[in-house]
Design a protein around this nucleic acid. Structure first.
Lengths: 194, 194
DNA sequence: CCATGAGGTAATTGAATGATTACTTAGGAG
DNA sequence: CTCCTAAGTAATCATTCAATTACCTCATGG
């Protein structure tokens, strides 16, 4: 396989693994197995686990912003909030993408990854504020809703959807549409076992 | 020192360390040093790192709910949203408390901690819905705002407050009041070095 | 006054894991 | 052919870290 294709397939695999176990919890060996290559190959291709994670974050952010920019092209101003929301939830199809980002949001203490996480978050903020033309309070509400969705995904609240009426109500309220997407993912996508 | 006092002081130290480095990233040795005891003592007192983290989460949640219940006692219904918000931000004074909780929110894949995290989150939801009498959408908005605040804290957005106007605007919007509290903490409280 | 138990610690271990080194193999270009 | 490079692996190393074991040392009440 060509190096560039291999690179992309490792990045995809790494996104899933980092999403499930976090930066520290994930091992380069798990990533390698998920990508179907050997552990040394992963480390050599990206230099280090840290650099691999930074590339995962960069890729995730690029995909997120690309999806949002497409919304900007396709829809009118008054539809944007709802359409951005839909586009955001659709990113759940990219396994681990939102979760990898969320893992970075809790690593502010790390000098390298913390900086990247802040810059990445601010890129999104800047996009919404300037390119999308949202007001500050409008952006706040949008981001807040996104962070709640992240939390529902991160905590796997969908595991309790069937059995716990409160979980069901919470999920239904937090994910206005596309809830089925989240529920289906839980059943379809199993995390790699350690 | 009495065993129970030691227990509490270790729990406080552990809350700070887990908040900074996460469950996997934190070491029992860091906790021990922060608490001024030896590493084996920490492990023996709590049985395992996992059980220690579960106790940290339990304590954090108890303090959170206690603060909210006090608000319920002290203020009228129409003031509750703002007062809960204030009480929530005040929990930042308890170093690592909100961050430890947030770290648990990203561990849904872990069979033990993930379950505890879901249950804990649902406890808060149930409180707001039933004891506080909030409607589902009202709770959603409140929790969403809380998750955004968590994110700002986790990513240490306050580090960029002085230098980045966007970060300043974002923080000012996300933390309507008590922003000074967050900013001060960043300067006062340094994370334990590894 | 000394035994005993609570409150600790130093030393060690075994497993996990990121990184390194030294190989192997396939498939074009000459 | 055959040489050379890109794509990849097996084996191993050096650390880190949770957990265990085997101690130590005071109070205090009989």
């Amino acid at each position: 396989m060509k190096s560039q294709d291999r690179r992309e397939s490792i990045l995809e695999a790494a996104t899933g693994v980092f999403g499930d176990y976090g930066y520290v919890g994930a091992t380069t060996d798990q990533v390698a197995r998920a990508a179907g290559v050997s552990q040394p190959y992963v480390v050599r291709m990206f230099g280090s686990k840290e650099k691999l994670f930074l590339e995962v974050l960069r890729r995730a952010l690029d995909l997120l912003l690309a999806a949002f920019r497409q919304v900007l092209v396709d829809y009118a101003r008054d539809e944007l909030p709802r359409r951005f929301g839909r586009a955001y939830v659709d990113l759940l199809n990219d396994r681990g993408l939102l979760l990898s980002l969320m893992h970075s949001y809790v690593m502010g203490s790390d000098p390298v990854i913390g900086r990247a996480a802040r810059e990445g978050f601010l890129e999104v903020y800047e996009f919404l504020r300037k390119e999308a033309g949202f007001g500050a309070e409008e952006v706040r509400q949008f981001l807040a809703g996104g962070m709640l969705i992240n939390t529902m995904v991160g905590v796997r609240m969908s595991d309790d959807f069937e059995t716990n009426p409160l979980a069901r109500e919470l999920l239904t309220t937090a994910l206005p549409e596309k809830l089925d997407l989240l529920l289906h993912l839980g059943k379809t996508q199993k995390p790699e076992s350690r």
